[in-house]
Design a protein around this nucleic acid. Sequence first.
DNA 1: CAGTGCTTGTGTTCACATTCACAAGCACCA
DNA 2: TGGTGCTTGTGAATGTGAACACAAGCACTG
Lengths: 189, 189
Amino acid sequence: MYLRAISFLRRQGQDYVSSRDLADQLHLKSPQIRKDFSYFGAFGVKGIGYRVDTLIGRIREILKLSGTQKAALIGAGRLGKALALYPGFGLYGFEIVEIFDVSPKKIGKKIGNTKIQSIKHLGNLEKRGIRLAILAVPAEAAQETAERLVEGGVRGILNMAPCYITVPKRVRVQTIDIAMELGILPYYV
Amino acid sequence: MYLRAISFLRRQGQDYVSSRDLADQLHLKSPQIRKDFSYFGAFGVKGIGYRVDTLIGRIREILKLSGTQKAALIGAGRLGKALALYPGFGLYGFEIVEIFDVSPKKIGKKIGNTKIQSIKHLGNLEKRGIRLAILAVPAEAAQETAERLVEGGVRGILNMAPCYITVPKRVRVQTIDIAMELGILPYYV
DNA sequence: CAGTGCTTGTGTTCACATTCACAAGCACCA
DNA sequence: TGGTGCTTGTGAATGTGAACACAAGCACTG
């Protein structure tokens, strides 16, 4: 969250930012931000604020986002296609290098510059330098596909299906349930 | 989250569920679940568990998800199209009844059964019974579009753009930043 | 109908994150 | 060079949510 906000400031040409400014923008209190940044290792300047470049570098370092991260996309449906061509991954240095699907009709076709492969070729992702996967398959297929990803050596899964998936402890899953997020809104409205 | 998990159990024909079973499935501790359900108003049966139908009804009631909720979709790009046809909204009773876009090339065309309208016709959403909007426009346009939605009487916005948007207090925003969720993974991997 | 096994509901404890408050420090200015 | 204004970094106070432990209660069995 900080990385996104501060990258935005850099694009606007800002060199320094104070905890107060960031707090206002992110709807947080300023001591919260100073505490967090102090955990990162202190590098603010009293009277001035934090240097934007330093912050971005440090946060990327902590999140292990330095350099480019290769990712695989599983599922070339409507959502998968949208994700394959989504420009927002660039900010974090992600690149979708392989796309998989079950449907014979889709296999062999291209999305952007990437050819859709059969899901049978999921093995050995690790040896191809891929540790992350985006799972954009129907909920019914999510668990099974996740297991094949784990076999293939994937260490992190971004699950777009509206269900929990169970994986070994060494694998991290982050689930985005779009409908659920929408479902939160009526309560407050 | 509970609603999703318990709806799944109902589809499987399960009548009762214990806090322990739910805890295992959701990777939570059982007292957590009992505490939450007790806040909803106690209706479990000792020795048996909670009645699935009762739970679903009560949670839907609390979240104000009873009946059907109309929603507007703004942005008919790749992501917008995927969302318009996304089947997952049904579980929560959502229905996307109107779609808007700026591009003259898209206006007039249909996604599914819904015609794409010009973004100029955003006003009066409230009078058409629409209180929720899904914002699937580029980050640069998100703030401006959100303001027009608020003018149109929208009370809740699901923001798919990777940025914060500022709205009056009476309006609730829920942001999904897909790339950011992916950005969390390398830290743990 | 007493005993057993399982489950709820909740008072208490515990851990942790947020917020407050303030000393310390930098920059700018007269 | 001393004064002013702003900002950081952090110990202490506060608030909050999760975990524990256990009494109470239901169902089934012999």
